[in-house]
Amino acid sequence: MNYIKKAIYGPDPAEQRRTCQSLIRQNQRQIDRQLASLQSSEAKTKQMIKASAKRNDVKSARILAKEIYGVKKQRERLHTSKAQLNSVSLQVDEAFSLQKIQGSMKTSTGVMKEVNQLVRLPELMGSMQQLSMELVKSGIIDEMVGDTLDTLDDNEMVDEDAEKEIDSILGEITNGAIGTPQPAKEKVAPKKESVTPVPQAPTTELEDEEDEDDEALLMDMRERFKALQG
């Protein structure tokens, strides 16, 4: 019977509205889960930074601080996405209310723009594609969102501003033990130590070994962060 009604009168607007709002809530819950996971990961990473600071392992602490920087960026993006979903929800309700009054559905460029942005998030790509399909069926948006998805990597090269932020993160977590620049000590030290450039040969070997260890640790941190994103 419902099939015949749909064939004659088209899809039921009330049912479409419920479906769209259900998918929006599903995306909001997904964002909440991601935010909770990020909070847990950040707390663990902070403990690891404190442990590194106690060992005076500045390089490891800095690598971990870069991970926290990436977590903060992702959290900001998720909060923005949650606000956009709330906006989409309000606009969907408004569109269906106007349809009831005017008798026809009008497309919304505002919803289209926000859905296009949300569907690119790796955390939401599946459920957002479902939502976009329902919005197309309802007539709220008039075209499908493109298949090309932008993958955002928070572990890409960091600029100078990011380096300052990482220093600030280290200083905050370690209560200034590491992460804050100390130009005074660096300027005074060369006067006493500038006369001893001899140990450069063995230092390069040690630096190579340390660089390899740091690279391995950084790779491990990146894999852990990517697993969290997935």
Rank of each mutant, 00 (worst) to 15 (best):
D93A: 14
V158Y: 05
I101Q: 14
M112F: 13
L131R: 02
A65N: 09
S132A: 15
Q28D: 04
L228C: 08
V111W: 04
A7G: 00
E205Y: 11
L170H: 10
K137I: 12
K113S: 14
I63E: 01
V188G: 02
T148F: 12
T148W: 03
T196W: 05
V158Q: 13
L131E: 08
A227G: 00
T109R: 08
L23M: 08
K6G: 01
A162P: 01
M48I: 09
L85C: 10
S41I: 01
I141A: 07
S41K: 13
A61V: 15
P199C: 05
R29M: 04
M125C: 12
Q129F: 13
A227V: 00
A65Y: 06
R55T: 05
K44N: 13
R222M: 08
D161G: 06
G139F: 00
A216W: 01
Q47C: 02
D57H: 12
H79F: 04
V92S: 07
A184L: 10
L121F: 08
K72M: 01
M221F: 02
S41D: 09
R29E: 05
S132L: 06
E223M: 04
L124W: 06
R29D: 05
S108M: 07
E165C: 02
D93H: 10
I178Q: 11
Y69N: 10
E134W: 03
T204K: 12
Q102W: 05
Y9G: 05
V58P: 05
V111F: 03
L90Q: 14
M112R: 09
N56A: 15
G230H: 11
D167V: 01
E165H: 13
A227R: 07
S194I: 03
P199E: 00
K66V: 00
G126H: 13
E156V: 01
R55Q: 12
M105E: 03
E15T: 04
S40Y: 07
V145L: 02
R33K: 11
D214V: 03
S37Y: 02
Q182D: 13
F225H: 11
L118V: 14
S89C: 02
K82F: 15
M157W: 01
L35F: 02
G230D: 10
E163A: 11
I140E: 02
G179V: 06
